[in-house]
């Protein structure tokens, strides 16, 4: 896994990617902006029976029924409060739309692939397999997520395992 990632980093030295950065607890995270549909305020959702607590429920996104995941609950960081400042990032992953609840959205950064450092092995809320790298911005470290992998992971259980297999 690690090998693959470093290789990727080496190969695409000059390309720049845009990342959306957001705050979860005390840490700054970034995800590839190409996965983002839109950012919107938190709205009441319809609860789904027997779903884990971090799956808040589903809501209507222009006619699509979209699940909402609270990453703060899943990774036990920050305060899981819901008010008018609570932010949902709508992600577009494998032809599916999923909303994630985060503490705040901060910025969009341009990052050259060569500037991305390998991710830390520990000290982050996420399992290292969902991390893509570390990016220094203004003396701050931003943890870049492999958001596709995280969202489609078995751990989140957002998708049926059968549908995942057929898609991958």
């Amino acid at each position: 896994m690690r090998n693959e990632q470093t290789q990727e980093v080496d190969n695409q030295d000059t390309t720049t990617h845009e990342y959306l950065t957001f705050i979860l607890g005390d840490e700054h995270y970034g995800l590839d902006i190409m996965n983002v549909c839109e950012i919107r305020g938190y709205e009441p959702v319809t609860k789904i029976a027997n779903a884990p607590s971090f799956i808040k429920g589903v809501l209507n996104l222009r006619g699509d029924i979209v699940p909402i995941v609270d990453l703060r609950l899943k990774f036990d960081v920050g305060q899981a409060t819901y008010n008018e400042f609570t932010i949902v990032i709508m992600l577009h992953i494998n032809d599916r739309i999923v909303g994630i609840v985060v503490d705040a959205v901060s910025d969009v950064i341009n990052m050259q692939t060569s500037d991305i450092k390998p991710p830390p092995e520990f000290g982050v809320a996420f399992d290292s397999q969902y991390l893509f790298g570390l990016a220094p911005v203004n003396e701050q470290m931003i943890i870049l997520l492999n958001i596709e992998k995280l969202i489609s992971s078995q751990e989140l259980g957002l998708f049926d395992s059968t549908t995942l297999q057929s898609e991958s």
Partner: peptide
């Protein structure tokens, strides 16, 4: 509307 399009099957629904 389909729930499975973006989520998964839910029992009883």
């Amino acid at each position: 509307k389909s729930l499975e399009q973006h989520y998964r099957r839910v029992q009883g629904v």
